[in-house]
Amino acid sequence: MKYQFITVEGNIGAGKTTLTHLLAKHFDARIVLEEFADNPFLPKFYDNPQQYAFPLELFFMAERYKQLKEMVHKDLFQQTTISDYLFTKCLLFAKVNLPEEEFRLYQKLFDIIHQQLVFPDILIYLHAPVQKLQANIRKRNREYEQSIPDEYLFNIQETYTSYIKQHNIKTIFIDASNADFLGNEKHLQVVLDALEREYEPGQHYFTLP
């Protein structure tokens, strides 16, 4: 395996966790999953974003940091590790969710702790249109997600893609418009084949059959 630490990212409903599970099973890898269900502010945020955005993002950052820091203490490089989130996700969502003054404060906290973590060897980014994301969100049927507006998903998407391009991150960029990693073995095989190759920094685009 060429990569010891792989991260799968994408918008809400892109299929990150499904693909992470499948890759971890294939490579017999350690898996790191975001524990979003433990965030008590998440349902409240969708009901009242202005009031709960800051505690929501602080809670997520603290939990993600704790989880990834513990992973490093377990000796990251003794086993392939696959995560379904990038720690920088904290900053990207905060940029969309927080007013400017709160975001500047949040960014100061983020910058202090981000440098203590290990960056993944490669990022797999699942890019799906908002219509596909909404269909997946309806399908998994988490009550608090059902009223997410298209505009919010579009803003998250734009923030992700802008960050990846701006920082020239080594990225396997997958058009997940028709993705069905559970039901179509050929879709998973595209990702497995992509992970067999070496890449220069930047985005490397793949489509699914």
Rank of each mutant, 00 (worst) to 15 (best):
F119P: 02
K108G: 11
R138D: 12
Y85R: 08
E101D: 14
L86S: 09
V96L: 08
K139E: 08
D84W: 03
Q67Y: 01
A29H: 01
Y106F: 15
M61L: 13
Y46H: 04
Q131F: 02
R104K: 12
E35C: 04
T20F: 01
R30T: 13
F36R: 09
P149E: 00
L117T: 05
P99Q: 12
E70G: 10
R30I: 04
K74D: 10
Q50R: 14
T18N: 11
L23P: 01
Q107M: 08
V96W: 02
K25L: 05
F119M: 07
Q146G: 06
A135R: 07
L117P: 02
R30C: 07
H127W: 06
I124M: 09
E102R: 13
V130T: 15
Y52C: 12
E35R: 14
R142V: 03
T88P: 01
T18E: 13
K25W: 01
P129D: 06
R104Y: 06
K16M: 09
I124S: 09
L92V: 13
L76Q: 05
G10D: 10
E63M: 04
S147N: 14
F60Q: 09
F36T: 06
K74N: 08
A29I: 02
T81V: 15
F119S: 08
E70A: 10
L98Q: 06
E143I: 00
L42Y: 00
C90M: 01
F93P: 09
S147L: 07
Q50S: 12
H114P: 00
I122N: 03
R64E: 11
D111L: 12
S147P: 00
I82F: 11
L86H: 12
I137P: 06
L19E: 06
Y46M: 03
P129W: 06
A14N: 06
A62D: 11
L117E: 02
F87D: 09
V96K: 03
L117K: 03
M71D: 09
L58M: 15
D38Y: 01
H114R: 10
F77D: 08
V130R: 10
V118A: 03
F45M: 05
N136T: 02
F45C: 05
N136V: 02
L19Q: 08
Y125K: 12
E63S: 12
L22T: 01
H114I: 11
E151Y: 03
K95P: 07
